[in-house]
Write a protein that binds this DNA or RNA. Structure first.
Lengths: 153, 153
DNA sequence: TTGCTCCTCACGTCACGTGAGGTGGC
DNA sequence: TTGCTCCTCACGTCACGTGAGGTGGC
C-alpha cells in the first residue's frame, strides 16, 4: 500500500504525508480521538499539524496507532512497555539490516574470489593444457644432446 | 560473576543452581516475597523446588528478577510488557548470534579461498617457472622430426 | 447553527503490589 | 515456640481510557 489512487487524485499521497484529521485517524485506528491526543502528549506519536494547528495523521501514523492498539488491547501492555518495544524493534531492525548487508558483502567477496580463481585456472590451462597429449621437454636439452627423445630416457 | 567462592565451599555453585529460598531471593532482588510468587504465577520466572516444595532461586533467577524490577520500577512497564520485552530480547540475541556465526563463516570462506588461490599460484609457479629459461616442445614432435629443435621453428 | 477542532479536568476500571490470615514442617 | 514456608483473599494505588465541558474557526 505505497500509494492510493482516488478518482480525482492528482497529487501523490505518500505514507508519511499528513492527510487524516483526528476523527478519521481515530476511526481508522479504532480508537477514541482523545486517546490519540493522549498518546501524542506521551510522545508515542507525532502527527503533522495544519497551519491552523489541526492534527494531520499520515498512513504511517495510523499504522503505528494500530500497532499500539495491538500491544495495549491484545497483549495488555501499558504505554511504557510500548515505548520500550518500539526501541527494541528499532534495534532489531538495525541488526537485521546489518546482517543483510553482511550477507551481500560475503556473497560479493565469494564471487570475486571465485572469479579470481577461475581466472587463474584459465591462465594455467592456457599455458599447460595444450601440451597435455605428449610429454614436454626443455628445448635446450633437445638441442644439447641431438638425440631422439624417446631413447634419451 | 560465574561462580562465587565461600570459605568452606566444596561444591561448585553455578548460576543456574537453585540456592536461595524465597526470602533471600526477594531481598537480593529488592522485592516483596509475595511479588516473587506472583511473578511465578504469571510465568515470568520459574524457580526450582526442593523435595518439600520450597522455592529455590538461582543466581540467574535473581538476575532476571532484577531485570524485571528495572523494567517495572524504573521504566514503569507492566508485566505484559516485560514478557514481550523478554521475547524481543531473545529474538535480538538470536539475530546477533546468527550474525556472529555469519561473520566467522565469511572469514573462514575468505581464508579458504585465499589458500586455494595461493595453492594455484604456487602450482602455476612450479610448472611454469622452472622452464622459463628455455622453450617447451612436445616430445612427440621431437621424435617425429628427429631434428634439432632450434632449427625446427 | 452544526460539527468539527482545540484544550483541561475528572472519574471508572483494571493491573499490580503488598499485607493479612491461616496452614504446615524444620 | 519462633521463623520460615506454603497458599488464598482483599485492599490501596496508579496508569489508562474516555467522557464532560468550554473554546474557536470553517
Amino acid at each position: 500500500m505505497a500509494t492510493r489512487r482516488r478518482r480525482t487524485a492528482r497529487v501523490e499521497v505518500t505514507d508519511d504525508r499528513g492527510v487524516f484529521m483526528i476523527s478519521v485517524a481515530a476511526e481508522l485506528a479504532e480508537m477514541h480521538p482523545q486517546t490519540l491526543r493522549m498518546y501524542e502528549a506521551r510522545g508515542l506519536i507525532t502527527p503533522k499539524r495544519s497551519p491552523k494547528g489541526t492534527r494531520l495523521y499520515s498512513q504511517e501514523d495510523v499504522d503505528r496507532l494500530r500497532r499500539i492498539q495491538e500491544m495495549t488491547a491484545e497483549l495488555g501492555m501499558n504505554l511504557a512497555g510500548v515505548e520500550r518495544v518500539f526501541e527494541l524493534e528499532g534495534e532489531l531492525e538495525r541488526v537485521v539490516r546489518r546482517m543483510q548487508a553482511l550477507e551481500r558483502e560475503a556473497e560479493r567477496v565469494r564471487a570475486e574470489m571465485e572469479a579470481k580463481l577461475e581466472g587463474l585456472r584459465r591462465e594455467a590451462r592456457a599455458e599447460i593444457v595444450p601440451y597435455r597429449p605428449g610429454r614436454l621437454v626443455p628445448a635446450k636439452d633437445v638441442k644439447r644432446f641431438q638425440i631422439p627423445i624417446e631413447r634419451a630416457r
